[in-house]
Simulated scan of single mutants.
Amino acid sequence: MTDSPHPRATDKRRRLAAAAARVLHEQGVERTTIADIAHAADIPVGNVYYYFKTKDDLVRAALTEHTTHLAELTRRLDQLPDPRQRLKALVDAWVAQRHTTARHGCPTGTLAVELDKRQDTTLDQDVAHTLRQLLDWAEHQFRTLGLADPHDLALTLLSHYQGMSLLTNALRDPDITTRQGARLTHWIDTLAPADQTP
Rank of each mutant, 00 (worst) to 15 (best):
M1K: 12
T2C: 01
H6F: 06
A17S: 12
A19F: 04
A20C: 11
R22L: 10
V23D: 02
H25Y: 05
E26L: 06
A35C: 04
D36Q: 09
A38G: 03
A41F: 04
N47W: 09
N47I: 06
Y49N: 08
Y51L: 02
T54P: 07
T54I: 10
T54S: 14
L63P: 07
H66F: 10
T67Q: 08
T74M: 11
R76F: 04
P83C: 09
K88W: 03
L90M: 11
L90N: 09
T101H: 00
T101M: 09
P107S: 11
P107H: 10
T108M: 14
G109V: 05
A112W: 05
E114H: 05
Q119V: 13
Q119L: 13
Q125S: 12
Q125D: 15
Q125Y: 07
V127D: 05
A128R: 12
H129Y: 15
L131M: 13
R132H: 14
Q133K: 12
Q133N: 12
E139R: 14
H140T: 11
H140M: 09
F142A: 03
G146W: 07
A148E: 12
L155E: 10
L157H: 02
L158T: 15
L167K: 10
N169H: 15
L171G: 00
L171D: 10
P174A: 09
I176N: 02
I176T: 08
T177N: 01
T177E: 05
T178W: 00
Q180W: 11
A182N: 04
D189T: 08
Q196M: 06
